[in-house]
Amino acid sequence: MADEPAAKTVTALLVLGCPQVPVQTSIALYLINRLRKAGITPVVAGNKAANTLLVVSDPDRHYLGEVIDLDRAVGLISDKKRDFDRCFVFIHNDAGVSYAATMGAISHAKLYALVYGEHYEEQVKKIDFPCTVIAAKAVHNPLPLKKAIDEVTPWAA
């Protein structure tokens, strides 16, 4: 009897921005949970502070899986050593837009731009590359962004 081909693992990269806006950590954990429930393996890439906020928030790794340095992730994808099926970029400043554009250029992943913060509309206007924009004015309260994500259901697409 021929073996059935193994199902390919679907992966998602969460590209964290500067953690100065509080909603990022809770939305990242929420999204990781939803992705996992949908059978998608999440990988987080951020700077040291952003990654550490998540690692300390989830000490037993109920949600978190692999966590890698952001610059290393960019290098691995640019050098074609690694890629993902979906990529979620957290954006609340100009650097976030730059990282999203970079991911759109170097990765084959379906790209989602999660835009939040006090001046989220200003950042949305800068996005002129193909991606799904999920945006809400969310700074301390993650619920507006959670609602916007739930409406798109990016784990189901």
């Binding site: 960019v74 290098g75 994808i77 640019s78 730059s98 990282y99 554009a101 970079t102 250029a105 800068k126």
Partner: peptide
Amino acid sequence: VQPGFKVFDVHVIGLP
């Protein structure tokens, strides 16, 4: 150059 292009050992970030 395009995003991800290497200058020295730095992969440059930005909108193309």
